[in-house]
Amino acid sequence: MSASVGIAETGPEQPKEFAFTAANLKKAKAIIAKYPDGRQQSAVMPLLDLAQRQSGNWLPRVAMDYVADMLAMPRIKAYEVATFYSMYNLKPVGKHFVQVCTTTPCWLVGSAGIIDACKKQLGIGLGETTPDGEFTLIEVECLGACVNAPMAQINDDYYEDLTPENTVALLQALADGKPVKTGSQTGRRGSQAKSGPTSLHAQAKAAGVEG
Protein backbone atom coordinates (compact mmCIF):
# COMPACT_ATOMS: atom_id res chain seq x y z
CA MET A 1 0.00 0.00 0.00
CA SER A 2 1.22 3.46 -0.81
CA ALA A 3 1.78 5.84 2.07
CA SER A 4 -0.86 8.07 0.56
CA VAL A 5 -3.73 7.49 -1.84
CA GLY A 6 -3.25 10.98 -3.17
CA ILE A 7 0.05 10.28 -4.85
CA ALA A 8 0.43 8.01 -7.84
CA GLU A 9 2.26 4.71 -7.48
CA THR A 10 5.56 4.87 -9.27
CA GLY A 11 7.05 1.44 -8.63
CA PRO A 12 9.22 -0.30 -11.22
CA GLU A 13 6.32 -2.65 -11.94
CA GLN A 14 4.37 0.22 -13.53
CA PRO A 15 4.32 -0.45 -17.28
CA LYS A 16 5.26 2.28 -19.71
CA GLU A 17 2.22 1.92 -21.87
CA PHE A 18 -1.17 0.32 -22.06
CA ALA A 19 -3.69 -0.40 -24.76
CA PHE A 20 -6.72 -2.67 -24.89
CA THR A 21 -6.31 -5.91 -26.79
CA ALA A 22 -8.45 -6.23 -29.90
CA ALA A 23 -10.98 -8.36 -28.00
CA ASN A 24 -11.14 -5.97 -25.07
CA LEU A 25 -11.40 -2.99 -27.38
CA LYS A 26 -14.49 -4.58 -28.86
CA LYS A 27 -15.88 -5.11 -25.37
CA ALA A 28 -15.04 -1.54 -24.42
CA LYS A 29 -16.89 -0.19 -27.43
CA ALA A 30 -19.91 -2.29 -26.51
CA ILE A 31 -19.81 -0.91 -22.98
CA ILE A 32 -19.50 2.69 -24.15
CA ALA A 33 -22.41 2.18 -26.54
CA LYS A 34 -24.68 1.49 -23.57
CA TYR A 35 -24.59 5.13 -22.53
CA PRO A 36 -26.38 7.97 -24.29
CA ASP A 37 -24.49 10.44 -26.47
CA GLY A 38 -22.44 12.87 -24.45
CA ARG A 39 -22.56 10.62 -21.38
CA GLN A 40 -19.76 8.27 -22.43
CA GLN A 41 -17.82 9.14 -19.31
CA SER A 42 -20.28 7.00 -17.38
CA ALA A 43 -18.42 4.01 -18.82
CA VAL A 44 -15.35 4.79 -16.77
CA MET A 45 -15.97 2.15 -14.11
CA PRO A 46 -16.56 -0.87 -16.36
CA LEU A 47 -13.67 0.24 -18.56
CA LEU A 48 -11.32 0.53 -15.61
CA ASP A 49 -12.43 -2.93 -14.57
CA LEU A 50 -11.73 -4.25 -18.05
CA ALA A 51 -8.30 -2.64 -17.97
CA GLN A 52 -7.64 -4.15 -14.55
CA ARG A 53 -8.55 -7.63 -15.80
CA GLN A 54 -6.32 -7.24 -18.81
CA SER A 55 -3.40 -6.12 -16.65
CA GLY A 56 -3.54 -9.10 -14.28
CA ASN A 57 -5.98 -7.89 -11.63
CA TRP A 58 -4.39 -4.51 -11.05
CA LEU A 59 -4.61 -1.08 -12.61
CA PRO A 60 -1.40 0.57 -13.76
CA ARG A 61 -1.44 4.34 -14.04
CA VAL A 62 -1.04 4.22 -17.81
CA ALA A 63 -4.21 2.12 -17.97
CA MET A 64 -6.16 4.82 -16.11
CA ASP A 65 -4.72 7.40 -18.50
CA TYR A 66 -5.71 5.22 -21.43
CA VAL A 67 -9.29 4.83 -20.24
CA ALA A 68 -9.62 8.54 -19.45
CA ASP A 69 -8.29 9.49 -22.85
CA MET A 70 -10.60 7.00 -24.51
CA LEU A 71 -13.59 8.61 -22.81
CA ALA A 72 -12.29 12.15 -23.42
CA MET A 73 -12.38 12.98 -19.74
CA PRO A 74 -9.71 14.66 -17.60
CA ARG A 75 -7.28 12.04 -16.34
CA ILE A 76 -7.68 13.24 -12.77
CA LYS A 77 -11.36 12.20 -12.92
CA ALA A 78 -10.32 8.65 -13.71
CA TYR A 79 -7.79 8.75 -10.87
CA GLU A 80 -10.55 9.91 -8.53
CA VAL A 81 -12.74 6.96 -9.45
CA ALA A 82 -9.91 4.45 -9.28
CA THR A 83 -8.72 5.64 -5.86
CA PHE A 84 -12.24 5.84 -4.47
CA TYR A 85 -13.28 2.25 -5.08
CA SER A 86 -11.40 -0.39 -3.17
CA MET A 87 -11.93 -2.98 -5.88
CA TYR A 88 -9.41 -1.30 -8.16
CA ASN A 89 -5.95 -2.45 -7.20
CA LEU A 90 -3.42 0.26 -7.85
CA LYS A 91 -0.47 -2.03 -7.17
CA PRO A 92 0.18 -5.53 -8.50
CA VAL A 93 -1.46 -8.37 -6.54
CA GLY A 94 -0.87 -12.10 -6.55
CA LYS A 95 -2.49 -14.51 -8.98
CA HIS A 96 -4.93 -15.42 -6.22
CA PHE A 97 -6.20 -12.28 -4.51
CA VAL A 98 -7.52 -13.48 -1.15
CA GLN A 99 -9.90 -11.02 0.52
CA VAL A 100 -11.10 -12.24 3.89
CA CYS A 101 -14.14 -10.56 5.37
CA THR A 102 -13.67 -9.47 8.97
CA THR A 103 -16.78 -7.38 9.49
CA THR A 104 -18.98 -8.14 12.52
CA PRO A 105 -21.04 -11.19 11.36
CA CYS A 106 -17.96 -12.97 9.98
CA TRP A 107 -15.91 -11.94 12.97
CA LEU A 108 -18.57 -13.35 15.35
CA VAL A 109 -18.28 -16.76 13.76
CA GLY A 110 -14.50 -16.86 13.65
CA SER A 111 -13.04 -14.80 10.83
CA ALA A 112 -10.04 -14.09 13.04
CA GLY A 113 -9.22 -17.81 12.89
CA ILE A 114 -9.55 -17.76 9.10
CA ILE A 115 -7.10 -14.87 8.88
CA ASP A 116 -4.67 -16.72 11.14
CA ALA A 117 -4.97 -19.85 9.04
CA CYS A 118 -4.30 -17.87 5.87
CA LYS A 119 -1.30 -16.11 7.37
CA LYS A 120 0.13 -19.37 8.56
CA GLN A 121 -0.52 -21.27 5.35
CA LEU A 122 0.77 -18.52 3.07
CA GLY A 123 3.52 -17.24 5.33
CA ILE A 124 2.56 -13.61 4.78
CA GLY A 125 0.82 -10.87 6.70
CA LEU A 126 -2.18 -8.76 5.70
CA GLY A 127 -1.54 -6.60 2.67
CA GLU A 128 1.37 -8.75 1.60
CA THR A 129 2.07 -10.90 -1.43
CA THR A 130 3.88 -14.22 -1.38
CA PRO A 131 7.38 -14.07 -2.90
CA ASP A 132 6.30 -16.32 -5.79
CA GLY A 133 3.55 -13.84 -6.64
CA GLU A 134 0.85 -16.48 -6.22
CA PHE A 135 -1.14 -15.09 -3.30
CA THR A 136 -2.03 -11.69 -1.88
CA LEU A 137 -3.89 -11.57 1.43
CA ILE A 138 -6.00 -8.67 2.64
CA GLU A 139 -8.90 -8.19 4.99
CA VAL A 140 -11.98 -6.45 3.66
CA GLU A 141 -15.18 -5.00 4.96
CA CYS A 142 -18.53 -6.76 4.53
CA LEU A 143 -18.94 -8.49 1.18
CA GLY A 144 -22.60 -9.18 1.80
CA ALA A 145 -22.53 -12.94 2.29
CA CYS A 146 -23.07 -12.79 6.06
CA VAL A 147 -25.51 -15.66 6.05
CA ASN A 148 -22.72 -17.99 5.01
CA ALA A 149 -20.12 -16.42 7.27
CA PRO A 150 -17.21 -16.57 7.62
CA MET A 151 -16.28 -16.02 4.03
CA ALA A 152 -13.56 -14.84 1.69
CA GLN A 153 -13.44 -13.68 -1.88
CA ILE A 154 -10.65 -15.02 -4.04
CA ASN A 155 -10.51 -13.24 -7.38
CA ASP A 156 -14.10 -13.25 -8.67
CA ASP A 157 -15.45 -16.06 -6.52
CA TYR A 158 -16.90 -16.31 -3.03
CA TYR A 159 -15.81 -19.10 -0.69
CA GLU A 160 -18.19 -19.48 2.23
CA ASP A 161 -18.67 -21.40 5.48
CA LEU A 162 -14.97 -21.35 6.03
CA THR A 163 -13.18 -23.08 8.86
CA PRO A 164 -9.45 -22.86 9.48
CA GLU A 165 -9.15 -26.42 8.14
CA ASN A 166 -11.08 -26.03 4.90
CA THR A 167 -9.39 -22.68 4.33
CA VAL A 168 -5.98 -24.32 4.45
CA ALA A 169 -7.19 -27.06 2.10
CA LEU A 170 -8.64 -24.48 -0.25
CA LEU A 171 -5.42 -22.46 -0.37
CA GLN A 172 -3.40 -25.61 -0.87
CA ALA A 173 -5.63 -26.70 -3.75
CA LEU A 174 -5.24 -23.29 -5.36
CA ALA A 175 -1.49 -23.42 -4.91
CA ASP A 176 -1.40 -26.87 -6.50
CA GLY A 177 -3.54 -25.71 -9.36
CA LYS A 178 -6.26 -28.21 -8.52
CA PRO A 179 -9.91 -27.44 -9.19
CA VAL A 180 -11.73 -25.96 -6.19
CA LYS A 181 -15.34 -25.67 -5.24
CA THR A 182 -16.75 -22.15 -5.08
CA GLY A 183 -19.52 -21.13 -2.69
CA SER A 184 -20.03 -23.01 0.53
CA GLN A 185 -17.14 -25.19 1.54
CA THR A 186 -19.36 -27.37 3.73
CA GLY A 187 -21.76 -28.40 1.01
CA ARG A 188 -24.58 -26.14 2.17
CA ARG A 189 -26.94 -25.22 -0.64
CA GLY A 190 -27.36 -21.52 -1.16
CA SER A 191 -28.16 -19.90 2.14
CA GLN A 192 -30.37 -22.55 3.62
CA ALA A 193 -30.17 -23.09 7.36
CA LYS A 194 -27.10 -24.90 8.61
CA SER A 195 -29.20 -27.62 10.22
CA GLY A 196 -31.06 -28.31 7.01
CA PRO A 197 -34.50 -27.04 5.95
CA THR A 198 -36.68 -26.22 8.96
CA SER A 199 -39.81 -24.44 7.84
CA LEU A 200 -43.00 -25.97 6.53
CA HIS A 201 -41.64 -29.49 7.12
CA ALA A 202 -44.66 -30.71 9.06
CA GLN A 203 -47.12 -29.28 6.57
CA ALA A 204 -45.23 -30.80 3.68
CA LYS A 205 -45.30 -34.18 5.38
CA ALA A 206 -48.99 -33.88 6.19
CA ALA A 207 -49.78 -33.02 2.61
CA GLY A 208 -47.80 -36.01 1.46
CA VAL A 209 -45.43 -33.85 -0.54
CA GLU A 210 -42.47 -34.85 1.54
CA GLY A 211 -41.73 -38.29 2.87
Binding site: G6, E80, T83, Y85
Partner: peptide, 13 residues
Protein backbone atom coordinates in the same frame (compact mmCIF):
# COMPACT_ATOMS: atom_id res chain seq x y z
CA UNK B 1 -8.56 11.14 -4.27
CA UNK B 2 -9.31 8.16 -2.12
CA UNK B 3 -12.24 7.87 0.22
CA UNK B 4 -13.35 8.18 3.82
CA UNK B 5 -10.60 9.09 6.24
CA UNK B 6 -7.97 8.56 3.56
CA UNK B 7 -9.40 11.20 1.28
CA UNK B 8 -6.92 13.73 -0.07
CA UNK B 9 -6.82 16.65 -2.42
CA UNK B 10 -4.11 16.31 -5.01
CA UNK B 11 -3.05 16.05 -8.61
CA UNK B 12 -2.14 12.36 -8.19
CA UNK B 13 0.59 12.73 -10.77
Amino acid sequence: LGRNEMVEIGTYV
